[in-house]
Each structure stands twice: as C-alpha cells, then as structure tokens.
Amino acid sequence: MAGIFVAVACALLGVFLILRRDSMIGHGLAHVTFAGVALGLFLNIIPLGIALAVAVLAALGIMKLKEKAGLYGDTAIAIFSSVGLAAGIVLATLARSYNVDLFGYLFGDILAIETSEVWLSVALAVVVVFVVILNYHRFMYMTFDREAAKVSGVKVGRLEVLLTVLTAVTVVSPGIRIGGHPGGCRSSAGIQF
C-alpha cells in the first residue's frame, strides 16, 4: 500500500522533472540522503530528520547551482550526488562499525515498512496530488518556457522551490525505506523518477 502511494507521488512529480531534464534528481538526492542518514546515525540523532534536512538543502543547492552557474540539471545533480555519497562513506567509516540500519536505508526494504510510514506515504501522496492539481498549468508553463512564464507573472522562483522541496521530501520520507539507495538495485517501488 505504501508503495502505491509513493508511486503516485513519484509519477506526478516525475512528469515535470523529466520534462525539465532533471530526471536524475531522485538518484542524486538518494545519494545525498545516504550522507544524511549516516550523519544521523553517527550523531545518534533520528536519521530521517537529518536526512530530510540534508536532502532539502541539497535539492535547493542543486537548483541554485543550475541557476547561478548556468549548469545543466544533470551536471549539478552529479556534483551533489558524488559529494553526498563520499560524505556518507566517510561518516560510516568514521563510525567504525556499520550499523545495520544504515544498510537498511542503503538498500531499502519495502517489507520493513512500519504502519506510521504507510500513513506518512499516504499523507505525502495527498499533498503532492493537491499541489500538482492546484499548480498544474503553472508548472507546465514554467517547464515549457521559463522566461515567458516569468514575464507573464508566474512566480517561477517560488514554484521551483515548491517542486524541489516536494521532490526531496518524496525521496526521503517513505521512499528511502521503500526504494533505498538507487544503487542498491533492490528497490521494490523504485524512487527513481
């Protein structure tokens, strides 16, 4: 059930991400999330909260890097992805012993999902559906022609932040337990967009 709801959220967001040529963002954020989880476990703090904060910051960083440095989306994503994975490995090494939880997050396990995470995925899907329905035409306009949309009065900057944050939350929240780190190749619901 959680997988179905995460799939709904991913499918809706994925349409815009693919058209914006940001299709690798799920992959990249999952790498960054791995660093967040490792940091959380290293500091003995709830890993999901840290991972969420790190993923949102990374997603916003990717957006800013694209805008300011004029990079292609996949280039900016690759930079954050590599740094995220490297940071995760460094943190896991510093911790000296791999915590089994880290592997759980790394590879994902849809059967290990808890009831609270099912409800989290339902809530997330509802929010994503609501936001996409409310902003569908504006998302399409800014995806098709960003400059013309801006001149028409579409708040492109705010909508891009909204789309980016929703993507990060979708990757991290229930998705990480379902899909895990995409490199693990064991994702049941697949968080790749």
Partner: peptide, 18 residues
C-alpha cells in the same frame, strides 16, 4: 516531444496569476 498541443501552448498565458 513536449506533450502540449498548440492551443494548450497558447492557453498557457492564461495560467499566470493575473
């Protein structure tokens, strides 16, 4: 391959706040 018809592209202008 952008999935929009001509009338949808023209109508995009209506979806701004104004």
């Amino acid at each position: 391959l952008f999935p929009a018809s001509i009338k949808e592209v023209v109508a995009m202008e209506f979806h701004a706040v104004s």
